[in-house]
């Protein structure tokens, strides 16, 4: 599904190198987690994969289903099946959630040469998805993320994911700012979208999210590299001992 090879990334306007040779291979239907201390490059990886400006790839490659991601604009990556759930979903006053979602869905379909979804069919589709995710219909009528609580914003990300049906989902610290109940709701949403044809890359500081979204593989990232990979037990080890021991091993 997602293949990252020897990815080197620096900030565009500074000499600061952030990713120093990341290798990662996520198979179809798998859930991978990336953990790591602050400043290890986790969020940068998610931004570089989704095409945010301000970064320069100096070496390496990233492909999604064989397609060179790094050559595509952000909207093209989305149409190719990539989805980034933001750590801080953006508020867009004056643009209704439904208008936004329908614009996004139809833009992606158009890019893939598929027919657009009519307003009626779209309404049906969103209502159905919202119901499954236990999202209040009232939330759909409001402007994108405006006045949403932290939990509502994250659930709105999951709703977008459910409607857009991406192949590769990156969750960037989706648990940040959520209480336990809200986190569980979000995790339930993610779990309901798990599928043999859909993969997840879950970026998180803490093990607690992984109690709810069980990963197949856990990676530890530090100083711009993946320093260790293993099963779910690796996350438990971090939770118990912190990152210091792991870092000491490799440095």
């Amino acid at each position: 599904m997602l293949e990252i090879k020897n990815l080197h990334v620096k900030l565009q306007d500074e000499d600061k190198v952030i990713l120093k040779g990341v290798n990662l291979s996520v198979g179809a239907g798998q859930v991978h987690a990336i953990m790591g201390p602050n400043g290890s490059g986790k969020s940068t990886l998610s931004y570089v994969l989704s095409g945010r400006e301000g970064y320069e790839v100096t070496a390496g490659s990233a492909t999604l289903l064989g397609q060179d991601l790094l050559a595509l604009d952000p909207e093209e990556r989305a149409a190719a099946g990539l989805f980034l759930a933001f750590q801080y979903p953006v508020e867009i006053p004056g643009v209704g959630n439904m208008v936004f979602l329908r614009t996004a869905l139809n833009a992606q379909r158009k890019a893939r040469g598929e027919p657009e979804v009519s307003a009626g069919d779209f309404l049906k589709l969103v209502r159905e998805k919202a119901k499954t995710l236990k999202i209040d219909a009232e939330m759909l009528k409001r402007p994108v993320n405006v006045g949403f609580s932290g939990g509502e914003k994250k659930r709105n990300e999951i709703l977008q994911m459910a409607v857009l049906e991406p192949r590769m989902c990156i969750l960037d610290e989706t648990d940040s700012g959520l209480d336990v109940d809200a986190m569980k709701l979000v995790a339930d949403g993610v779990n309901s979208l798990r599928d043999a044809g859909r993969s997840f890359l879950v970026i998180t500081h803490y093990q607690r999210l992984l109690d709810h979204i069980a990963p197949d593989v856990v990676h530890i990232m530090a100083d711009g590299r993946i320093i260790r990979s293993g099963g779910p037990e690796l996350a438990l080890e971090v939770e118990k001992n912190g990152y210091a021991d792991l870092l000491a091993e490799v440095l």
């Binding site: 095409g51 936004f100 614009t103 996004a104 833009a107 890019a111």
Partner: peptide, 8 residues
Amino acid sequence: FYLRSRGV
């Protein structure tokens, strides 16, 4: 970027 990342 948020809007573009959704395919717009």
